[in-house]
Amino acid sequence: MKIKNYITPLLVASSLGLISMSGYAAPMNAESKSTINTVSVNQHKGKGKILAIDKKAQKIKLAHGPIKSLNWGAMKMFFAVENKDLVDEVKVGDTVNFSFIKSNDGRFIIVDMN
């Protein structure tokens, strides 16, 4: 039997919404009641100088060098810091090595700094 005989009905059914060609993450075990939405978390590393600290908003402005994993050149930008202890351990003018992630809502969040 020819493959063409199967492809045309599948394409028609898919375009009509009768079947879905997209996937989803299913629960990992029988006890789970919700579908799991997984996101790949890439940690990026950089080195920079602290230009400003906003303790109330938990943000740090860095003048950082290139971030190779994101193909970024050197720039100045704010990063969110969710661990308040990291904000308390540094001061304006410090040069730091830092690791950060990009959150689902698009924020860049420092997760480690020394």
Rank of each mutant, 00 (worst) to 15 (best):
K61P: 10
H64A: 01
G73W: 10
M21K: 11
D94E: 12
K91H: 05
K55N: 06
Y24G: 08
K55Q: 04
M28Q: 08
K91P: 06
G17S: 10
A30L: 12
L70Q: 06
N71P: 07
F108D: 04
L86R: 02
V111E: 08
M1C: 15
S32D: 06
S34F: 05
T35Q: 10
I110Y: 01
L18H: 11
D94A: 04
G65E: 02
K102Y: 06
N104M: 13
L11C: 12
L16Y: 11
K76R: 11
M75Q: 04
S14E: 13
N104E: 13
S14R: 12
R107Q: 08
I60C: 06
A74H: 00
D105W: 10
H64T: 02
N29A: 08
I110F: 04
I50R: 00
Y6D: 10
E31D: 15
A30H: 07
L16D: 12
A25H: 15
L51K: 04
F78W: 09
K102N: 09
K55D: 02
D94S: 04
A52H: 05
Y24P: 05
L16G: 09
T8K: 15
K76Q: 07
F79N: 00
A30V: 01
A13I: 09
V81F: 05
I7S: 12
K102P: 10
D105Y: 09
E82Q: 10
Q58D: 05
V111W: 09
A30S: 11
M77F: 00
V39N: 13
H44W: 03
T38A: 11
N71F: 07
A80L: 14
S99C: 09
T35N: 15
T35G: 15
P66D: 07
D105C: 08
A80W: 14
K45L: 08
N5L: 14
N29S: 11
L86V: 02
I3A: 11
G93N: 00
E82S: 14
F100P: 05
I60R: 00
A57W: 03
S40I: 14
A30F: 03
I3F: 14
K91Q: 00
R107D: 06
G46V: 01
V90S: 10
I60N: 01
V111K: 08
A80I: 11
R107A: 12
G73L: 04
H64E: 01
G73C: 05
V81N: 02
L16H: 14
D88G: 03
V111A: 09
V87L: 01
K55F: 08
T8M: 11
L62K: 00
V90F: 12
D94G: 03
P66T: 04
T8R: 15
V96E: 13
T38Y: 13
Y6R: 11
N104L: 14
K91L: 01
M113Y: 05
K84N: 08
K76L: 07
N42P: 13
N42K: 08
D54Y: 05
F98S: 04
N83A: 09
